[in-house]
Design a protein around this nucleic acid. Sequence first.
DNA 1: ACCTGAACACCGTTCAAGT
DNA 2: ACCTGAACACCGTTCAAGT
Lengths: 197, 197
Amino acid sequence: MSSTRETLIAVAARLLDAGGPAAVTLRAVGQAAGVSHNAPYRHFADKTALLAAIAARELQGGPVEGGGPTDIESLMRGYVRWAAERPERFKLTFGRWEAGSDELAETATAARGRFVDAVARAQADGRLPQADPERLTALLLALAHGAADLALSGHLARDGKGRADPEMLLADLFEHLARSTASAAEAARLPANGEPR
Amino acid sequence: MSSTRETLIAVAARLLDAGGPAAVTLRAVGQAAGVSHNAPYRHFADKTALLAAIAARELQGGPVEGGGPTDIESLMRGYVRWAAERPERFKLTFGRWEAGSDELAETATAARGRFVDAVARAQADGRLPQADPERLTALLLALAHGAADLALSGHLARDGKGRADPEMLLADLFEHLARSTASAAEAARLPANGEPR
DNA sequence: ACCTGAACACCGTTCAAGT
DNA sequence: ACCTGAACACCGTTCAAGT
């Protein structure tokens, strides 16, 4: 039912990819969907709600689709690659959602849950340091997000020796964390083990 | 000379802070500056150029003003605090500058230079691991940027146990890096010292 | 329940004209 | 060299009306 709604979302996402947010006008969406320019108002409260629907759809099936590898390194790599390949959807999804829809917030929380699980597994394997899994996940996601965003706005890529792309920075962080894990394991062999769980 | 130009930038920045990018219309800027709504075209090629001028001014004197502390921890804290206090300017500065002005790119490069210097000093003090300073700077900036941006879009703050704000994540990263540094120093005591300078 | 066409207020940009 | 007022095309949103 209401296939028009899905059509509008798909059409709007395509316009977004092709021409950026400026190209997503209700008139263009309507024309591409074969309806009038104000038919969207029967399915969405306003233009913002339509954009929020794109972002929600992206958070559900987008960055880490089901079926692929589930180790934390692969998940993070998938995140930065998604940002590089679909920059407009990435910018939209993590853009300004001042009083954004509750649905979007819940979807984001669910998506983060998969990352937390992967982090916990890596901790159990000794590949990540012991720490609160949610907080460590936030650290990893913040780095991936920041690297991806800086790369898109041209504040990261350099031509010379200091060149760095998001995947490199991700690898660097994992290496530093691995060393930090080893250091903590060393300390644990001493009689006084002060490392909180 | 041309004080009108500076006035237009200042007025536009004030409108941006007050009401977000939607509030920055050439008509509102002109009215607040006491000129007609198309007088800005005598000083800027178009609206984008005016916004770029705001971003450039922000990059120069904004996040890390001269005179304050210059250690890397304080610089990074200043960055995330600036983002939290002036979210609209932060979003604008690191927003979409597709074919952005060259001046803006140069200003950004110069601003990053101060961070690289601070990182190099921290490395000399043994507070940060040995690595390419530019690349380590990129890692730190990416985390600060990502944490600040996720916090602004509500994808970071949680109510429960997993709560994390940008300054906490920054402190976590510095702690992990310090442990990584200690681990590398341990390894350096062994006969085979494989850590490249 | 869903869609249309006309209309309104607003915006970025251009242009002829003024000093 | 800098500014103004009118005008143009475009946009989000509303509303009366249609099926």
